[in-house]
Amino acid sequence: MKVEARLFDVITVFFFLAAIIYGLWAKEVVGIVGLILTGGLSLLVASYFHFVARRTAGRAEDNPDAEIADGAGELGFFSPGSYWPVGVAAAAALAALAMAFWQVWLLVIAVVCLLLTVGGLVFEYHTRPNATD
């Protein structure tokens, strides 16, 4: 995570410097505020990556002398065939459509559909604990 943290550190410095230069050059308030807020958001991400990097073991990406084989191995579990993401996308599209036309009844339906599909996605591989009788 150190590589990502450094990357966002550079982005944060760039946006704050761009805000200063833009403020001196253009004297326009909205652009300055936008650049400062963008720098603040990238600072939040950089802080998170620094926080996580201190608490996790070093990865192959963080070692400049690492070989490609050092990064081999299992990366995690990825569902081979799940239709829940399609349902989440459809419910989110329905919610966006409801907000675009401000149809509150459709927004309520979309939020319920969104909650159901996200719940299905999260608990897709959940198994209940064994009952001991």
Rank of each mutant, 00 (worst) to 15 (best):
I68M: 12
L115R: 03
F78R: 13
S42C: 11
F49Q: 01
I68L: 12
D70L: 08
A72F: 07
C113P: 03
L121E: 09
A93D: 07
E124A: 10
A91L: 04
A100R: 12
F51H: 02
A60R: 08
E28Y: 11
E28G: 01
V104N: 09
L37W: 00
G58W: 05
A91C: 03
E61I: 05
V118A: 13
V104Q: 13
G39N: 02
V45Q: 00
E61K: 00
V52K: 05
A66T: 10
A89L: 15
T38K: 02
T56R: 14
T38R: 04
V33S: 12
L41E: 05
A66M: 08
G34P: 05
L35W: 08
E61C: 06
D62S: 00
A53Q: 03
G76R: 06
V112M: 08
A95M: 13
V122Q: 02
M99A: 10
E124R: 09
L24G: 15
A91Y: 06
L106V: 11
L115V: 13
V52D: 03
V33K: 12
G23Y: 08
V33A: 07
E67P: 03
S42E: 08
T38P: 01
V122T: 10
T117G: 13
Y125R: 14
V122R: 05
V29T: 13
W102T: 13
V122N: 04
L115I: 12
S79C: 04
A26D: 09
V33D: 03
A92Y: 12
S47N: 12
D70M: 03
E67T: 11
E74N: 03
C113L: 15
T38E: 05
L41D: 00
G76I: 01
C113N: 13
I20R: 03
A46F: 01
A19H: 07
G81I: 05
A110Q: 04
G39M: 02
A19N: 06
W25S: 04
G31Q: 02
I32K: 08
F123C: 02
T56K: 11
F78T: 14
P80C: 04
C113W: 11
G81D: 14
